[in-house]
């Protein structure tokens, strides 16, 4: 340990620097959202609010329970979607990680192929909305696109393949364990690090998603998740301010009610606040998977 003292200092210095670089913009974001709108526009952004104001947050929360309902939706779809995602990914990735699986290369290729080619938005919209009928239902937020990512399958496959020794499977098979048994007693415990990682990716994807809300929710806006709601605010603001140069007098009246950048900063902060709060609690799951020895014994 002593020998590694220099190394520890190096590692910690670099990572502290990285951490600062990562967190500073968030501080700026928060501070700008707390700065009085007029001061922000006149003096520009600053780490220290020239004049403190909660105006931006008042603007957002004026819509009242809509925001809280949307938080609820987000939590619901994130939880459901992530569980389904991890389960499906793991169930698919484990067989694919076995070198003797028939047609393994072909299946891997077919999975990979979907990462490259897609039919575009319109065909998938027609399929999900007209044939499967997810439009204006909560399924519209959960099912399309997010429930299984080919990328995650391949990453998990690689992990299983390299981190779980074949000898463990062989031993289990000699003991007469069935495949489901092997999956639950060897693959899942040993794969914990990657399961948590993929789970995190999936949860973030669900949390950050607003596309599904945009495409599949048209009339039941009470189903909007938080990002859909906030993104709608932001895209309206952007459209109106960017078109201010080219519109006729028609839009000018509407334009006048466009809130300023401070509100958008506040919106961004509101959207990520809960997940920032949850982050520290997730951390313990990233710790090492169960030591190999424990399983062997």
């Amino acid at each position: 340990m002593k020998r590694n003292r220099g190394y520890q200092i190096l590692a910690n210095t670099v990572m502290l620097l990285v951490t600062a670089l990562v967190i500073l913009p968030f501080v700026l974001l928060l501070m700008s959202s707390l700065t009085d709108e007029n001061v922000l526009l006149a003096n520009g952004y600053s780490f220290i609010p020239g004049k403190f104001s909660l105006g931006a947050y008042e603007y957002i929360f004026r819509s009242g329970d809509k925001i809280f309902r949307a938080y609820g939706m987000t939590i619901l779809i994130t939880a459901t979607g992530t569980v389904a995602n991890i389960a499906m990914t793991a169930l698919f990735a484990y067989p694919l990680s076995l070198k003797k699986l028939p047609a393994r290369r072909v299946i891997t290729f077919l999975v990979f192929f979907t990462m490259l080619f897609n039919g575009g938005l319109v065909p998938s919209y027609i399929l999900w909305s007209n044939y499967i009928g997810v439009k204006d239902t909560v399924w519209g937020l959960i099912l399309p696109n997010l429930m299984l990512s080919p990328m995650n399958i391949l990453l998990m496959r690689t992990y299983f393949e390299t981190s779980i020794p074949d000898t463990l499977y062989e031993a289990a098979q000699i003991d007469g364990a069935s495949q489901p048994k092997i999956f639950t007693s060897i693959v899942l415990p040993l794969g914990k690090p990657i399961l948590v990682t993929i789970g995190t990716f999936s949860a973030l994807a669900y949390w950050n998603d607003w596309n599904n809300g945009l495409y599949y929710i048209t009339q039941r806006t009470d189903l909007y998740a938080i990002q859909s709601l906030l993104n709608k605010m932001v895209s309206d603001i952007q459209f109106l301010s960017q078109n201010s140069g080219n519109v006729s007098s028609d839009l000018a009246a509407t334009l006048s009610k466009v809130p300023s950048t401070g509100v958008q900063m506040a919106i961004a902060f509101v959207a990520i606040l809960p997940i920032i709060a949850v982050f520290p609690f997730l951390q313990k799951y990233y710790s090492k998977g169960i030591a190999l020895g424990a399983v062997k014994g």
């Binding site: 048209t218 309206d236 109106l240």
Partner: peptide, 18 residues
């Protein structure tokens, strides 16, 4: 429809035969 999303949404609705 919102100002920011009407182009996208109308396009989908028209293409999808909604």
């Amino acid at each position: 429809l919102g100002y920011g999303d009407y182009i996208n949404r109308l396009n989908l609705m028209l293409s999808g035969g909604d």
